[in-house]
Structures are given as structure tokens and as C-alpha cells.
């Protein structure tokens, strides 16, 4: 299972047709990621990391190219089918947390289960478990604005993993956090990888990236370098 290919991108491009001139955010990205891999994506600002993550996360569609996720051609899927994939297969952690301000931590974490059609009782049990796993059992009825940044990000991670996705995507999950909190969250990701989850994170921080066994460097919408941890050690 560990060596099964789960993500396969072939010649992916993504262009934005702006009035002035088209922006080519991705210009032919090909990439294969296996189940259980821990991948860090690095690159300068504007290089196309978020664009790539959004496509992998089925939030956005490529302009051209093929995306096979878990054996399914994503480009041909309808919006509702993509919604189901985002709900069941992928967990997404955003840099700005993106929690619903009017809901408690527990309600936020339960939300993906609501859309998954899971019964209210089971939802509560699962969400509480996920929050507990992230050390937030004392904060379940707090609203996001009553939580610290690190706590909010942990709620967001709990929401991303509550439905047991096979892939966890995190776009600069520690960008807004201090180094101690960042380290805590990286530790959590390590644990999820150990449990067999495929984890892909975008980061600027080499320290954060060093947790990943594979680092992909993006530049001007293209993959500049793709190295496993061992290869990187050899270079150093």
C-alpha cells in the first residue's frame, strides 16, 4: 500500500486570463506522489505553489494537463463529484485557518461530517476525538475568536483530518505561527505520516521543510528540483 501512486500530475498548466496579459501560474508540472509520502513544496513568492496545491486539492481545475487522483481522472469530474472528493479523500489546511467565526470549535470540526451525511451522534464522537488528538479537549465550545492562532490552526487541522482523508494538504500551515507552535504542528504531521497519511505542505521555512522526506522546489510555475531527503543529505 505504501508504494501505491495516489497523485499523478501530467503536464499541468494553469493560466489566468487577465485583461492586461495572461498570467501563466503553472507551466507544465508533472509529478507523481505515492500513498504515505511526506512532501514539502518550496519556492519563492508567486512561483505557483498555492496554485499547484489548489489543483491537487480539487479546489481548482488545470487549464491543460491531466490529473489522476486515486486512479480517477479529476479533470472530467463534475463540481459535485469534486465536492465529494474534497469531503472524503482530501483534508485541506489553509494559511488563514478559514474557520467559520459563528461556530464553536466542535461545530467547525463537525462540518465536513455534516456534508458527508454522518449522523449527528457519530459526528460529535468523531469531532471530539479529533479535537482531543490535537490537545483541544478543553476548548471544544470556544469560538475561533476566543482561541489563539496556534489553537485555531489546530482546530483547522482537526477539521481536515476528522473524516480520515487519505491526503492532507497544508498551504503554509505555520506561516502565521511562532516557531514553538510550528514545531508542535510539524510533530503532528509526522505522526499522521507515520499512521499512513499522505501529507503535502507548502512552506518557505527550510526548518519546516526538513521534516519532509521529499522536497519539491517550484520556480516560475515549473518544478525546478525534486529531491528525497537522502538525496538532500548527500548534497549538504
Amino acid at each position: 500500500m505504501a508504494n501505491e501512486t495516489i497523485i499523478e500530475l501530467k503536464e499541468i498548466t494553469r493560466s489566468y486570463n487577465l485583461a492586461a496579459e495572461p498570467v501563466h501560474a503553472l507551466q507544465g508540472v508533472s509529478l507523481t506522489i505515492k500513498q504515505g509520502e511526506y512532501v514539502a513544496i518550496m519556492g519563492t513568492s508567486g512561483s505557483g505553489k498555492s496554485t499547484l496545491m489548489n489543483i491537487i486539492g480539487c479546489l481548482d481545475k488545470p487549464t491543460t494537463g491531466t490529473y489522476i487522483l486515486d486512479g480517477q481522472d479529476i479533470v472530467a469530474r463534475s463540481d459535485d463529484e469534486l465536492a465529494t472528493i474534497r469531503n472524503r479523500t482530501i483534508g485541506f489546511v489553509f494559511q488563514q485557518f478559514n474557520l467559520l467565526a459563528s461556530m464553536s470549535a466542535l461545530q467547525n470540526v463537525m462540518l465536513p461530517l455534516v456534508y458527508a451525511g454522518i449522523s449527528a451522534g457519530e459526528r460529535k464522537v468523531k469531532a471530539e476525538l479529533a479535537l482531543k488528538e490535537l490537545g483541544l479537549e478543553g476548548r471544544i465550545s470556544h469560538r475561533p475568536n476566543e482561541l489563539s492562532g496556534g489553537q485555531q490552526q489546530r482546530v483547522a487541522i482537526a477539521r481536515a483530518i476528522v473524516n480520515n482523508p487519505r491526503i492532507l494538504l497544508a498551504d503554509e500551515p505555520t506561516g502565521a505561527l511562532d516557531s514553538t507552535t510550528s514545531r508542535e504542528i510539524m510533530g503532528l504531521f509526522n505522526r499522521l505520516v507515520d499512521e499512513g497519511m499522505t501529507v503535502i505542505i507548502v512552506t518557505h521555512d527550510p526548518e519546516t521543510a526538513s521534516h519532509a522526506r521529499r522536497v519539491i522546489k517550484v520556480r516560475d510555475g515549473k518544478i525546478q528540483e525534486d529531491s528525497t531527503r537522502e538525496a538532500r543529505h548527500e548534497i549538504n
Binding site: 463540481d79 474534497r86 456534508y115
Partner: peptide, 16 residues
Amino acid sequence: TKEIGIRKAIGAKYSQ
């Protein structure tokens, strides 16, 4: 709009 985006990102369908 943001709330709708979040709901869609975590799997809300059109009909929902």
C-alpha cells in the same frame, strides 16, 4: 462569500 467558499472547500455540494 468566504463562508460559502469554506463550506464548498470541505465538501458542500451545489444542492446543499
